[in-house]
Design a protein around this nucleic acid. Sequence first.
DNA 1: AATTCCCTCCCCCAAAATAGCGGGAACCTT
DNA 2: AAGGTTCCCGCTATTTTGGGGGAGGGAATT
Lengths: 242, 242
Amino acid sequence: MKRRRAATAFNTILKALERTTELPQLQLISEQLRDYFEVDHIVYHWVSGSGTQYGCGTYDDAWVQRYVDQDYLRVDPVVLGCFQRFTAVDWKKLNWTSKAARGFLEDAQAHGVGNQGFSVPVHGPNGQFALFSVNHDSDDDTWFEFIENNRRNLILVAHYFNEKALEFEPDRAPEATAALSPREVDAMTFLAMGYSRAQVADTLSISEHTLRVYIESARHKLGAANTTHAVARALQNGLIVI
Amino acid sequence: MKRRRAATAFNTILKALERTTELPQLQLISEQLRDYFEVDHIVYHWVSGSGTQYGCGTYDDAWVQRYVDQDYLRVDPVVLGCFQRFTAVDWKKLNWTSKAARGFLEDAQAHGVGNQGFSVPVHGPNGQFALFSVNHDSDDDTWFEFIENNRRNLILVAHYFNEKALEFEPDRAPEATAALSPREVDAMTFLAMGYSRAQVADTLSISEHTLRVYIESARHKLGAANTTHAVARALQNGLIVI
DNA sequence: AATTCCCTCCCCCAAAATAGCGGGAACCTT
DNA sequence: AAGGTTCCCGCTATTTTGGGGGAGGGAATT
């Protein structure tokens, strides 16, 4: 089987990233990556529900603070565009037409953010989402060539950054949500698909009374207040797939 | 900024993968990767809801057929274990204790699956999930060294395989789901959190009648049969985050 | 300047979901 | 062989949702 490859500056940084055991070190590594890639900025941006976010990178503190203060998370086309996307994307390809987006762009550039950008969305289980971005000030051709040549390494480092960020994040719902029984999974699945109780019971060829027992049971296991909540939790925890 | 790196056999294969425009070519590339890594098997396994799955790789057809026939998707500890996980994992670390899992393992090895395995889970938006696995027959030390030396390339190729599989998959939710208005998002979010209509109305400081309008509106936009369905869709489409 | 959303509020009634109680048989893991 | 789960069925009560309808003001986009 394949043996070790030759060491490069990039591999050295990646190795350091792999071995990182503390959150603050990610900041240092982002700076090393910026210097290695010779770009203006490197940013890892982790987004959770309820507007919770964590970021590290080389943006000016003033810009980061402004981003938070202005709740730009809800405006930033990079975040909005990447959230439902799975492939890396050039910022030029995103939708900057809305008034809010244009205002955001102006503000960003006023705070030292370059005109070119490239972001790698990373999705984890339970809907976890993060972005790894490189940012630079250059013309289109130069930028395009840079991305072509470094796309793979950017994807790779995005993956590692996310792995580390999740590793250090205590918020990583351990919750050990009790697994559901097969029938409970069936029930939750069909409910998530929009079936009424009567339809689910019919589909599973059981009485509606029995079905109710499953739903109740699942609800209690999931600590849910009602069926909708239970389905949401089951989806979020990956217990059901629709 | 950084320029092109030296070409290697791996880079050549990855380049071919990047440029693939047809689904059947993934099969060919998996064989090239197997030969490059000098392992027994390379498999990409895409799992969608309702038991839909797509796979390509170097496993024997007989084993693939048996996997489908026996509905091993619901048993396979590799699938079950990786679904809720974000990091690559060695098969030895998974939970093989259940009776069904042991039976599955025996069956797999009888069909030419090696004793060692390593899988990279890949999550996409909307809960999309896939696995990229390498499989081999060897002792622990050799395997461990192999994984250590090739982890990055495996992660990278997993990412590209998934990108291609999704690109070719017409099932890729055409994302025709119209965006929700801010109030509709609020409503869906609180409902997903288990609030009753009365509680949501109270939280948003609007009448319950008004709230209903939002729920109805969101339901229609999402093409959902009921609130539970609407919340499930909103979650799945990344329109709300809880 | 016009149009298209979005937000807010109100009515009615049928349908569905929730909460609590009870039972017994089959199947795993221990 | 025991103990735990899962699986199936029954009842009644109250509360919550669903599916129609209509109406006006305001903000943003075209």
